[in-house]
């Protein structure tokens, strides 16, 4: 399957299928990570992160894939891994080209999202479900109330804000931990 076909899959919203095709590149990325001293689990995580970044970029209108998926995923993975290892020097950063800088920024951005994600994972199952339904399924509070057996949509709405606040608090503490 060519890169173009995969792009079409992304555009048509068949994200899962596209990921599935991209996984054929995984063995090569795995080799890269293994050669840099990671283990298979690391490789799997890195590739996942690279896919997330790719997906995020594809959603923004200004992103244009200038190279093949493999090249892109390869460089993203490299940065992700370097970031995990905290192994890049200032000199390396200065030598980066425009595209690489972008990727680097993406990776840094993604780290924040990762923190937010972790915060969500800490707020409890019910809160997670509520926020997911609201933000991703774009359900109305009425439907959420039905789905999650709240007494009314108002209760659902209140719950949602509570959960969000809770998550944000956790995020803030986490962010402080990371930055300190």
């Amino acid at each position: 399957m060519s890169d173009q076909d995969i792009l079409v899959l992304f555009k048509n919203g068949q994200r899962e299928k596209a990921f599935q095709k991209l996984y054929y590149l995984y063995p090569r990325i795995e080799t890269l990570i293994l050669s840099k001293g990671g283990n298979k689990d690391d490789a799997s995580d890195v590739f996942q992160e690279a896919l997330i970044i790719l997906n995020r970029n594809l959603q923004t209108s200004h992103f244009k894939l200038t190279s093949s998926f493999y090249t892109y995923l390869y460089s993203v993975s490299r940065f992700v891994w370097s970031d995990i290892q905290k192994s890049y020097s200032k000199q390396q950063l200065q030598e980066l080209n425009a595209q690489e800088v972008e990727i680097f920024q993406n990776v840094i951005e993604e780290k924040k999202y990762q923190l937010a994600e972790h915060a969500f994972l800490d707020i409890g199952k019910r809160c997670q479900q509520l926020l997911q339904l609201f933000y991703h399924k774009a359900m109305s509070f009425k439907d959420i109330a039905n789905e999650m057996q709240f007494k009314s949509s108002k209760v659902a709405k209140n719950q949602k804000y509570k959960c969000l606040k809770k998550a944000k608090d956790i995020y803030q503490t986490k962010l402080k931990q990371v930055q300190s």
């Binding site: 899962e16 924040k112 990762q114």
Partner: peptide, 22 residues
Amino acid sequence: IFINGLERIDIKSDIQNAKRTY
């Protein structure tokens, strides 16, 4: 950031599915 973080969960589940299928 929160919304993106939340999205990650979604993307991740998709990736996991894709991985399993692969």
